[in-house]
Simulated scan of single mutants.
Amino acid sequence: MKSILYWLLMPALLLVIWLLLNETVSIDHIVLGSVLALLLAWAAMALRPLRSTPKKPLTLIRLLANVVVDITKSNVAVARLIWLGAESHTPGFIRIPIELRDPHGLAALACIITYTPGTVWAGFSEQKGVLTLHVLDLKDENHWIQLIKRRYEQPLKEIFE
């Protein structure tokens, strides 16, 4: 029963998006949207052979809240750097040892880092477990290492591993 509900989650989301885009809840659009959603979800299953079931939903909510706060703070900091001019910041690359190995967790970490203005995921060595990160304003390398490890990697390990 649980697997059926899990499988129907994506078609339900696609149906809601379909109805919102068409701005109607007529029976014709519900039927057409349901058929399209089921077919698209079935076709997409072949593209995603590795499955993941996130654990600890409260940790996930806390992580999402932290990401929203960090993105907001980073937007303000980057805007301030741009307005103050090019001399006021020191860009650079840092290497951060990462213990996270789950591909879904690594993908989430890459998205979080890239969504945050002023940081870019520049590379990851699977053999060494080292993330290369480009930071727009790199004043304290240890601060960035602790930020990534504590604020993002630790919750992602709890959620995906």
Rank of each mutant, 00 (worst) to 15 (best):
A44N: 15
T132E: 12
P57N: 06
T114E: 13
I148S: 01
V78E: 07
V25D: 09
I30P: 07
W121A: 03
L14G: 07
Y115A: 10
S74F: 03
V16K: 11
K157D: 06
L40R: 15
T116P: 05
I30N: 01
T72F: 11
A122Y: 11
G105P: 11
L14R: 11
L58V: 06
W144K: 02
R150G: 04
L38G: 04
T90P: 10
E158K: 13
Q146K: 09
L133K: 09
T53M: 14
N66M: 10
G85F: 00
I4E: 03
R80Y: 00
L13Y: 14
D70P: 03
L15N: 02
G85W: 07
Q154N: 08
L60R: 13
A77H: 08
G123C: 08
T59P: 00
L8A: 06
V25P: 04
V25T: 12
W42I: 03
P155D: 06
I148G: 08
A122K: 11
S3W: 14
L47D: 13
T119W: 03
L138D: 05
P103Q: 12
M10T: 12
A12N: 10
E23L: 00
L138S: 04
L32F: 14
I17L: 13
L63I: 04
N75E: 01
I27E: 09
L133Y: 09
A108N: 14
V35L: 14
P11G: 05
S74I: 05
A12T: 14
L47S: 14
W144T: 01
I96D: 00
V120S: 04
V25Q: 11
L60K: 12
I94E: 05
G129Y: 11
A79L: 08
L19V: 01
V31W: 14
L156W: 14
E23F: 11
T59F: 09
W121V: 00
P49G: 03
L109A: 12
I94K: 01
E99I: 00
E141D: 04
Q154C: 10
F124R: 01
I145P: 00
P97T: 06
A107L: 15
R101I: 00
I4C: 05
A86G: 03
L13N: 01
L81D: 12
A44C: 12
P117C: 07
L156G: 07
W121M: 04
R101D: 04
N75W: 00
L9E: 08
A44R: 15
A122P: 07
D70G: 03
T114W: 15
M10N: 08
L40K: 14
E126F: 11
Y115H: 09
T119A: 09
E126K: 13
A79Q: 06
I112D: 10
T24K: 11
G118E: 09
A122T: 07
L136N: 06
Y152P: 05
R95H: 02
E141F: 02
L50Y: 15
I145V: 10
I98N: 07
S52C: 10
L32T: 14
L32S: 09
L106I: 14
V120A: 09
V16P: 08
G129Q: 11
V130M: 09
L64T: 07
Q154A: 07
E99Y: 02
E141Q: 01
R51I: 04
A86F: 10
Q127I: 04
V31A: 02
A41V: 07
M45N: 13
